[in-house]
Design a protein around this nucleic acid. Sequence first.
DNA 1: ACCTGAACACCGTTCAAGT
DNA 2: ACCTGAACACCGTTCAAGT
Lengths: 200, 200
Amino acid sequence: MPKKKSYHHGDLKNALIKAGVEILAKDGVSGLSLRKVAGRAGVSHSAPYSHFADKQALIAAISTEGFRQLYERESTVADLYADQPSKQLIEAAWAYVQFAMDDPDRFKVMFSAVLEKEKEYPEFVSESQRNFQLVRRIIEANQAAGVLRSGPSDLIALSAWGIVHGFVMLWLEGQISHAVLEKSSLRELVEFQLRQIMLD
Amino acid sequence: MPKKKSYHHGDLKNALIKAGVEILAKDGVSGLSLRKVAGRAGVSHSAPYSHFADKQALIAAISTEGFRQLYERESTVADLYADQPSKQLIEAAWAYVQFAMDDPDRFKVMFSAVLEKEKEYPEFVSESQRNFQLVRRIIEANQAAGVLRSGPSDLIALSAWGIVHGFVMLWLEGQISHAVLEKSSLRELVEFQLRQIMLD
DNA sequence: ACCTGAACACCGTTCAAGT
DNA sequence: ACCTGAACACCGTTCAAGT
């Protein structure tokens, strides 16, 4: 049983992050205002400033939480197909695309929020690095299995990430032509993209 | 000699686009307000509504103009190296990355502005398709020269575009680790990315 | 320590009015 | 047709005050 309603909220910080994610899904990036987030969490418009320095800091927290969830999904897939490297690679890419599609505005925010100020949001940095290291491990398994070329695994990880990320971003922004989308399913397109860097 | 200053501006529409690009370069996406754009163009804050339906429409116009300039650069490079397909491919990718770096905020706006409403901005759609067709021609030249795998050129064009675009976006958003950036120059990284889809 | 409410400077958009 | 200025609803942020 949660505490009775009182002057102090109890866990307002996390409630604000949750409210932010919900508004993002409902109203999109342009509809995300600090005042609306506060309202949804049932507090005054200035209450968030007790927990976040500014709007940017709340967005950083939403992004960080997003990377945590992305890691959960990716690592589950990676474990599931640990003994089939090429399938592991393709399914991980597909999980990434699905994550983006589940909540496109949150996904965009995750990759457009923090910018220069890396140092100011250390949790964000460590979460996103954790994701990159996972990609790197998948790449190394694929290199060992002869599915991917040999070479520096961090750079190849960047290629794999980049080709999937670029595809998702172009798709989310409606930059992929109707003609292409009619011929193949999204799943087939993702697999096709990834096969471009896989050895035959 | 331009017309004397008068009640009517003369070419306010283009002046607003120009002012918008300048503010984007100076203050970034979050600093781009319609009122600031109007002020910079020397008109009242409601004057833009004589030429654009809303802020979104001005952003669409800025994006469209951006794609026009991108096409200029890309087609120049493509013509220059028309007889060396693999160099043509790499230099075109490099031109893309440089375009993004010249004005990162405009580049981001170009790929995050229009969304669903494709139909409402036909000029934007045709400009971005024109760019894609150019990539496709470069890809076909490389396929003919045996530099790229055979297969549907629109899908391979998507791979090439996606791998470069994904890399640029990740770089712009500070998602590429310090370790990677210290070992290689940006130019080398771009070339490395592209070589992943090139045949040996 | 955490939250409220008034205040300020800014924003997008509308609309009657001026040229 | 094109532009102005007042008006409205909204925003991020600050700060004195309350618990």
